[in-house]
Each structure stands twice: as structure tokens, then as C-alpha cells.
Design a protein around this nucleic acid. Sequence first.
DNA 1: GCTATTATTCTCACCACTGAGATGGTGGCA
DNA 2: TGCCACCATCTCAGTGGTGAGAATAATAGC
Lengths: 175, 175
Amino acid sequence: MATITQPISDRSAQRHPEAHEPDVDETTLSALRLWVIMNRAQSAVTAHAAAHVARHGLTLAEFGILEALYHRGPMLLGEVQKRILVSSGGITFLVDRLTAKGLVERRTCDSDRRARYAALTERGQQLVVEMFPTHAQELARVMSGIPIEDQKAATEILKAMGRAAAQMASPEDDR
Amino acid sequence: MATITQPISDRSAQRHPEAHEPDVDETTLSALRLWVIMNRAQSAVTAHAAAHVARHGLTLAEFGILEALYHRGPMLLGEVQKRILVSSGGITFLVDRLTAKGLVERRTCDSDRRARYAALTERGQQLVVEMFPTHAQELARVMSGIPIEDQKAATEILKAMGRAAAQMASPEDDR
DNA sequence: GCTATTATTCTCACCACTGAGATGGTGGCA
DNA sequence: TGCCACCATCTCAGTGGTGAGAATAATAGC
């Protein structure tokens, strides 16, 4: 059965003898809680977005590519890859699949013969035009309970968080 | 090659003739931006957490189970499933694998013979004791650039967001 | 020029996880 | 008591990717 993404709210559950209180300082606890809550929120919102694009026969990664190409124009595969956060193998695979669906085409790059552009076909463009407004509205609907100022505040905080996390090396890397 | 999760910062890129400005209202744009930024942040932070647990030969889902069992004591499989957000098949699969690794065991439930508890073995418990502090510290390190008040503010907003999204039906459901 | 290094995409073996349906157990009700 | 809707878990075929390495092209240093 599909995962029903629901918040856990049994603060009433009594403690089991084999349970252990987490023992960390205030700062660490804050990070830990934010991590858990962010995962839950992301998962719950993603479920809606994924259901929406699935009605059009797409995965979120596929739609992400279409949307990126629509809003930025043709891009090198490597650019698309960084933008939608998939692996190098993944971008080849996804563009292959979108090409098979007739939504995307590869174009050669004159200045670098290793590189390929991905670009929307006519049909791909039509599909984005059709899907994007409802996709965006669906997200707006899901977040409609959160005041705009809060959304913007969260966006700024998460932007800083993502940036910091992305450029931070893992502790092992500096040996 | 692995995905390098990095923020995109080419506001300097000039607009391609085939590009299209997104045309949505302020409210929708806010939701859209939060959605994108949240995904990026989640992905970047997750990469660190996943790398950490991978050094101990675990996936994040596996570690999530161990952690939940450690902090709450033995739980029914269904409870664990809801808590770590995997499918029904997934929880069986993950508990199988953790059992094969000798970290978790299944226990019968006296009051309901359909149900099974998952519980940590001695070794599982040792592993959580060993891993949890560094896992938590790693998250704290990754988020160390974000002031605690911001972390807490983001946590509250995202908690409301997750709750709202989780209990919200998809537009198709009410037919 | 020539070699070493780096960048871009592609190939392919692999994998963590999904989800529809099966299995077996429970409990309410006529 | 027997029926049946419901529930928890399990099975298994399928999927949406990952990531190491190959192939090829560009670039830097000499």
C-alpha cells in the first residue's frame, strides 16, 4: 500500500522500558528536529506534486526537466543535471525517455563537440504550457494554510541552509 | 558520477530566445519558490546525512528504523512504517535486511497475531549508541550557519506545512 | 606540437524502494 | 456461531533512479 504521509502526534504514548531519551545539547536538538520536520514536510508536499504530474504520465524528475527547458530555453545536459539534482547517468536516462516520448530533443553544441543541448519539442512545449499553471496552483493550494510572510521567511532560511550544506565538505574529505 | 548538490547562481545568464518567463501571481510564485528551495535544501542536507550513515554500511531508511526503535522502544511494523515514511513492502524489506545484519529482531504480538514488533538486538543498540551522537552532530554542523532562532522558526513553519499537506486530499479524490 | 589533466556525456550493472495483490488474523453483528 | 468487512504483514515483479568506469573531446603546461 502507498505510504500515507501523516504527522505523528502521539505525544501521549507512554515510554517503553527499552526506550532511550535522546541526550544532546540544545543546538544539536534544534538541528535534529528541523531535519526531521523538513523531511516530513518535503515528503508530504512532494506526494501532491508527484500525484499531479503522474496524471500526465510523468515523474517529477521528468517534469523538472521540461519546466527547466521551458523557462530557460535549451540547456546543456550537465546544466540540466545540476539544476534538477540527478546523477550523470540519470540525466542521460531521463532525456532518453523524454525523447522517446517525443517531448525533448538533443541538439549538438557547435563550440564543444562533447556536449549536447536538450531542448523542448513542439509537443513538449505544449505539455508544459498545459501542465505548469495547474502544477503551480497545486503547490499554492497545498501551502495555502501558510501565510505568505512565513513562506518567504522559510524560503530565505532554507536557501541559506541549502547553500551552506552544498558547499560544505564532508568531515572525511579533508584528509 | 555523483550529483554535486550545489546552488545555482547564474542570475547573470542571459535569456535565451526559446525561454519563457513564468506567469503566475505573487501567491503562487511564493509557493513555487519555497517548493524549489526546500527541495534543494533537503537534498543538500540529506547528502551529508546519507554519507555519514553509509560509512557504517547503512541507508538512511535503515538508520531511521534503528533510531526510532532506540528512542521509542519496540514498535509494531506499521508504526515504524508511518514514522519513517516507507511503503508497506518497504518496511518488511528493511526489517528483513536489518534482521539479516543482526541489528533488529521481530517479536510476536500477544494481543494481535497478525502484528509483529520490531526491536533492537544487543548489537543494534550498540550501533545506535555509537552512531547517533555523530549523526546528530553532523546535522548540527551542516546547519551551524543558521541561527538557532531561524532554525526554530523554520521548524514551526515546516511543521504546519507538513501537517496541512498530509491531511489535504488531492483534488481528484473528492469525486 | 605533445602529453597530462580535466570536462561532458554515455553505458551498464546494480539497488533501494514501490505498490498491487495475497495471506492470514480480528472483531462486529445478525 | 457464522459471516464478512477490515486490518497488519508479506510477496514479488517492476521502476526510477545511482554511480563507477568508458569513450571522447577540450584545455593547460611544457
